[in-house]
């Protein structure tokens, strides 16, 4: 279908965008890549009075390698830019791998990290990645900026804590220990589709024992989440079949998967455990320099 009528505002600065959002008193939506918003408009699931287009805010399109070994990413950075960024590949290879699963080329050319995070689809890769990587999200509003931990940003499916007059501007990824091992596994019914489930793991091997373990899953709850019990099941000992099984069991226990025509909750719970097992094996193989089978 065709979208309902709206007024169009092309913002050229963050201040302009925030002012335009505030001026519409909660009736305006931000459009960045538009790859999730425009389908919702076309289906008439949304009827905002105005769209505030931030594609002209050039200073929000950047990937900066920070001195501490992390990254700062502008909210308007396209998926294709992240997919092909040497800094992402070097510092956060797990993110680079996740980007290979995001949609298709024409969507990646347009879609942005800020848009994906603000849309907060429970089966999208980027919300899971900022959760896994403990990102700090910088948000601009009429009263200035505030910083949010990624874990506090998502507030249920397709919902964030962003106020109606706020704009996500920057994503800051703190450094990972180097070297580290990582694993990412996703299952979708077709390449580029939203996942039924995915799992990502980052860890180090310290004196033969797993340390600095982070484990996140998505598609199996309202929001992507780290599973503390699964991380705890791995820490402090070598990764083995037993610890992997314990971590997968902890994940299956912790999640509350949705149920739809693509799969039952039982199926998704089973599936995510399998993906977790594979992700742990890959991460451990990479961390111990035994990554031959992990590619």
């Amino acid at each position: 279908m065709k979208p309902p009528p709206f007024t169009y505002v092309a913002a050229t600065s963050v201040a302009e965008a925030v002012a335009a959002l505030a001026a519409h008193d909660g009736e305006a939506k931000v459009i960045a890549g538009g790859q999730s918003l425009v389908p919702m408009l076309n289906f008439r699931l949304l009827a905002p009075a105005a769209l505030v287009d931030i594609n002209g805010i050039r200073e929000l399109d950047f990937v900066d390698a920070t001195a501490d070994g992390g990254l700062r990413i502008g909210a308007l950075t396209r998926h294709y830019t992240l997919l092909t960024s040497p800094d992402v590949a070097e510092r956060f290879p797990v993110l680079g791998e996740a980007m290979r699963h995001v949609a298709h080329l024409a969507i990646r050319n347009r879609g942005t990290i800020g848009g994906s995070l603000s849309h907060a689809d429970p089966a999208a890769e980027l919300p899971m990645m900022v959760t896994l990587l403990d990102a700090t999200l910088t948000v601009a509003g009429p009263g200035g900026e505030r910083q949010l931990a990624a874990a506090d940003f998502f507030d249920g499916a397709l919902t964030t804590v962003l106020a109606e007059d706020e704009l996500l501007t920057t994503i800051t990824l703190p450094p990972l220990p180097q070297p580290h091992g990582w694993g990412f596994h996703e299952f979708a019914q077709r390449a580029g589709d939203f996942a039924l489930a995915a799992a990502a793991v980052v860890l180090t091997a310290d004196d033969g024992a797993a340390a600095n373990v982070r484990l996140a899953v998505m598609g199996v709850d309202e929001n992507p989440s780290r599973i503390a019990a699964a991380e705890a099941a791995l820490v402090g000992q070598p990764v083995s079949d037993d610890t992997i099984a314990a971590a997968a069991a902890a994940v299956r226990e912790a999640v509350d998967p949705p149920e739809d025509l693509h799969g039952s909750a039982t199926y998704r719970r089973h599936l995510v455990g399998g993906l977790v097992e594979r992700a742990i094996r890959d991460a451990w193989a990479r961390a111990t320099g035994n990554a031959g089978g992990a590619a």
Partner: peptide, 17 residues
């Protein structure tokens, strides 16, 4: 659009200015 493939059903003409 400026050399990159995009979905023209997910882009508004006004954005192509």
């Amino acid at each position: 659009l400026n050399g990159d493939s995009v979905r023209s059903c997910l882009t508004f003409a006004v954005q192509a200015n």
